[in-house]
Amino acid sequence: MKEKTKPNLRKYSLVLILIGMIAICSILSENFLTPTNLTNVLKQVSIVTICAFAQAMIIISGEIDLSIGFLAGMAGTFACIMYIATGNLFLAFTFGVLLGAAVGAVNGLFVAYFKLPSFIVTLAMQTICFGAISLYTGGQNIYKIGNFKVLGQSKLFGFLPVTVLFMIIMLIITHTVLKYTKFGRYLYAIGGNSDAANAAGVQVCKVKWAIFIVSGMFAAIAGMVMMGRLNAGIPSEGGGYETDAITAAVIGGTSFSGGAGTAFGTFLGSVIIGVLNNIMNLLGVDSYLQMIIKGSIIIFAVLADYFSKNQKSGIKIMASTSDVKKSENK
């Protein structure tokens, strides 16, 4: 009864894929395996990875958040405006996070308490976010954002880009939430079977509401890092991050039907896409062709996941029934 479960190969398959990719890439291009290039890869994926953490937690709970991209654009740009007005970076950052939380709270309110489908609510919210910021700025981008750019362009200790630092902090936060908190446990339970979670005393509405607020905050942080990196407040830049975040989460093993996924998996999923983009650029692959290759790889990844899952669960079920039989025969 106490026998240990076999080491889960799937748990490490993403790491193996990444190592394999790095090995192949370093043969394909001598510029690949250099500290500068690798740092670049991490810098490039950092913003989308932060969005992907939010998306992964949302998908684990059985919902989806399509507002992430434009919410990032809006919150990031409003934070720039706040910074220009006050000159206080801490204030601007806090404002951005609160704005994200507020938008997330509205999403969550409709999804959790009015039981509207999150796909529709957050799709609508995406438009509202972009409309709101464009209305305020008259459709203009915000330039001369001064020191706000430290959020995206500075380096800590002279080598660690702040964007990467943000990503690592968010990774730690997401991992901790999912693995070590009750809240994380409730996310998995609700995504796995919300009726069962409810019947076990989990306050499903509250938890769902909360996760949308968290997602909004993550999106806002990603947005501010994004604007810092761009050295400007450009709301439209946020568009598309929500889908890239879904891609990263899914490649990272987050189950689209809810109830399964991890922070590290999501991180690896995002880095795998980053490495892919990077090597194709280094090799000078046509950018349109890049899109085709990327799309195909995503389908392939999901297909591989599908086959590995089906095969595995089939064998598992059989094995467990045989265990039962053996012990019943005693």
Binding site: K182, A189, G192, A196, A199, A200, G201, V202, G259
Partner: peptide, 27 residues
């Protein structure tokens, strides 16, 4: 429908209702 969370482990299913009674945020 209202009992198991199928995809999660036996451990998580056993303790789903009981971590509420423990204090604090962490498991």
């Amino acid at each position: 429908k209202e009992g198991i969370v199928g995809v999660r482990s036996c451990r998580e299913n056993i303790t789903l209702a009981s971590h509420r009674i423990r204090k604090g945020v962490f498991m």
